[in-house]
């Protein structure tokens, strides 16, 4: 019985004889295109086509161009757009701050047990369904919930948290933290920690070292992470409905209501396009401020 090694050794010369080229990890253009074709087809079919159709519908269905004037003339839609953008900016700031702290600890912590607990905390919201996640937060912030029990115990008294914008922000932040941690973990892991020690050994304080070494190196990654969090946050639908109690209207809720309650598809499609354009413009401006090169470096 020949061993595996013997079989391979016997096979090798025959392969070389037939002119096999040494294996190379790079893929040729044609192969790459063929391998990517299914993905491109899906992208065209399920992203590009619906978006184009949406834009056309917003201009042609129901009231035509008036769909857009209706969107802007509608006080509650303007309020929803404003609420969506402001809440998303607040969510982004909080999420990236929390995500940065978590990611830095994940990179630097020595104890495997602590690291495991941290990863668990980061991944837990990822494993739960949207509704479960939101109900967990309802239980936490409701009138008789844990947070209010604590506030009552320390003498502050029960506060109205559920059905406020605050609850919506807490809910979205909780869902978005994993995204921020994932993108920042990669950035922090790529930073040479000995640079910080070097700065400190040359007289920089801890804060100075972080400010002059860590922050500039991590900034493009932080902006990329913020862009990701913001882009996903503006589309939130379930959380504002469940935690906002109808009073923190997000654009997605307005769009949904116009499709499923008021049956105004023209209005819904125009509102969708407006949200898309405004959110893309804000992202574009933010990314431009950081600079394309630094960003590409951070993402790559």
């Amino acid at each position: 019985m020949p061993t595996h090694a013997q079989t391979i050794r016997r096979a090798l010369p025959s392969l070389r004889r037939e002119g096999a080229r040494p294996w190379s990890p790079t893929v040729g253009n044609v192969k790459a295109l063929i391998l990517l074709a299914p993905l491109v087809a899906l992208l065209v079919g399920f992203v590009f086509y619906p978006l184009v159709k949406l834009a056309i519908d917003s201009l042609t269905s129901d009231h035509g161009l008036r769909n857009y004037s209706d969107v802007f003339a509608n006080a509650s839609t303007r309020r929803a757009l404003y609420t969506t953008l402001i809440a998303s900016v607040i969510v982004t700031a909080i999420t990236v701050a929390i995500g940065a702290m978590l990611a830095w600890h994940l990179v630097t912590v020595r104890s495997p047990a602590v690291r495991a607990v941290l990863w668990l905390a980061v991944l837990a919201p990822f494993w739960m369904g949207t509704v479960v996640k939101n109900y967990a937060i309802i239980l936490f912030v409701s009138h008789d919930g844990l947070l209010n029990d604590l506030l009552a115990a320390v003498g502050i008294g029960r506060q109205q948290i559920l059905y406020t914008s605050g609850a919506v922000v807490i809910g979205i932040v909780y869902s978005m933290v994993p995204y921020a941690v994932f993108s920042l973990y990669g950035v922090f892991a790529g930073i040479d920690q000995s640079l910080l020690s070097a700065a400190q050994s040359m007289g920089a304080s801890r804060i100075q070292a972080l400010r002059t070494i860590l922050v500039p190196l991590a900034m493009p990654g932080a902006v990329a992470s913020a862009a990701l969090v913001f882009a996903i946050s503006v589309g939130f639908y379930v959380t504002p409905v469940l935690l906002g109690g109808g009073q923190t209207p997000f654009m997605a809720s307005v769009i949904q209501a116009n499709i499923l309650t008021y049956y105004d598809y023209g209005f819904a499609s125009a509102a969708s396009v407006v949200l898309l354009v405004v959110a893309t413009a804000i992202l574009g401006i933010a990314l431009r401020l950081v600079g394309r090169e630094r960003l590409v470096r951070a993402v790559a």
Binding site: K31, I34, L35, A37, P38, L39, A41, L42
Partner: peptide, 9 residues
């Protein structure tokens, strides 16, 4: 590649 493409179609 073709199989993948066919499957996705």
């Amino acid at each position: 590649g073709l199989c993948l493409a066919a499957a996705s179609c």
